[in-house]
Design a protein around this nucleic acid. Sequence first.
DNA 1: CGTAGACTTGACCTGCGTCAACGTGTGTGG
DNA 2: CCACACACGTTGACGCAGGTCAAGTCTACG
Lengths: 254, 254
Amino acid sequence: MSRSNDSDLQLFVDRLTARSVLDAEERQAILALRTHRLDLKARHDFVHENEESSYCCLIVAGLVGRFGQLNSGVRQITAFHIPGDMADLHSVVRPIGIGGLHALTDATILRVPHDAIRAMAARYPAIAEALWRDCMLDAAILMQWVVNVGRRDARTRLAHIFCEMAIRYGENRDVLTEYAFPVTQEQLGEAAALTGVHVNRSLKMLRESGLVTTSRGIVQIHDWQRLVKVGEFDPAYLIADTHPERQRRRFGAD
Amino acid sequence: MSRSNDSDLQLFVDRLTARSVLDAEERQAILALRTHRLDLKARHDFVHENEESSYCCLIVAGLVGRFGQLNSGVRQITAFHIPGDMADLHSVVRPIGIGGLHALTDATILRVPHDAIRAMAARYPAIAEALWRDCMLDAAILMQWVVNVGRRDARTRLAHIFCEMAIRYGENRDVLTEYAFPVTQEQLGEAAALTGVHVNRSLKMLRESGLVTTSRGIVQIHDWQRLVKVGEFDPAYLIADTHPERQRRRFGAD
DNA sequence: CGTAGACTTGACCTGCGTCAACGTGTGTGG
DNA sequence: CCACACACGTTGACGCAGGTCAAGTCTACG
């Protein structure tokens, strides 16, 4: 088990503290976790559905998809995970997987053992709370995904995904109107529940109406306001709390 | 604020202890929570999307749907909640709603204040863990919902929903081959992302192939094995843990 | 410069949506 | 106890968004 690069776990601390209040000791406890750094080739599954694991995967670099699968082998991507995401944090309390994880690009992950996280969560209730909250942000995204896939047409679905990623790549603070999103149209289809062909046609419509262009894995948003409108996008579900100063640390706060 | 009927909170204790190990003191702490009992008429929203709340809702009786909504007002039901479910437990750590809650039938709920739950979770790490785990079971169902709505055809989707509810109404132990599921075909459509008309046609197919009949809110499964096959149903995602005795209580267990 | 994977486009097909009519069961008031 | 209403279920005719198949074209890379 290799020593982790400090800056790798710092990614996770940054993610948590953006959503929860942690004091110096708690942050230190996270940075002290044992980890194992791993480089993955694109197009490899590294967590399998319904397989028990004993560690979580922090995405350090690259793009990862969580997916479910039909008997036929057809896949549905249920979440995109970007650097800073602990892609299967849920497995700490429920070790059999919620779907598999697939490296959409070359990726680097940090494996963090469940037992170390559990020990930490038992000792620091504020960390347990922060982890739980992080999982709930993930669940909120998942709920939007159901609505997106279930009820919106192809153009709207894709616009919604581009909006979501613009906020998430902007660390939930800024809107990134240009970002690297290295998925193929086929993979976008697996996320949006469309075929690659239809993704292509829908992207063309978005391009021709001057909203977004996608080329060589770069998304360029030309008209954020209209894209938000077309995608019926409301960023509320991505926000941890409407009153951060008051509520980010809740256990025992009142 | 009325005194709760003891047996109401016992529902929640039973739910948690089916998935997590809690000792007598912890169970007692849950039973001692302040609550407020409330009767709801069918077809009323009682939690609104993106509205902050200060309590969670335990379903005591009736059937409740969690839903997201498009600008057009079209709804997508993202979860069914049955008695014993804490429908918006997530709001403890993230008080702005993940979607609204709608009473599909007359229902009775128990409101439990967030601050009481938070105080309890801070004091008893094992309870925090149990609550977090419960939320993750919910998230697992949600992920399946994405796959269901995104990738399966109408007949398969409905079969999958009937399988899921058969297990959940059977308390995740037995398969109930006959159960009350008082939704209209229109509402089933809101869950399965289909129109009422197409639900009707698909139910007809399921009926004519001798798998399920639905009538006046009663689901009768005539051939569980074949229904599982048609619905591509794998109950793994409903199970808290493959090794309950070893893993249900994890914080500090090792 | 060749090859393999991704993107693009056209022609055609189909599952589900839409619209509209009609059947059926249940509760309510006269 | 009837009648009437109203919500739900059922069925048919038809349209369309998106799927399927197939034939290129573009681009990165060895």
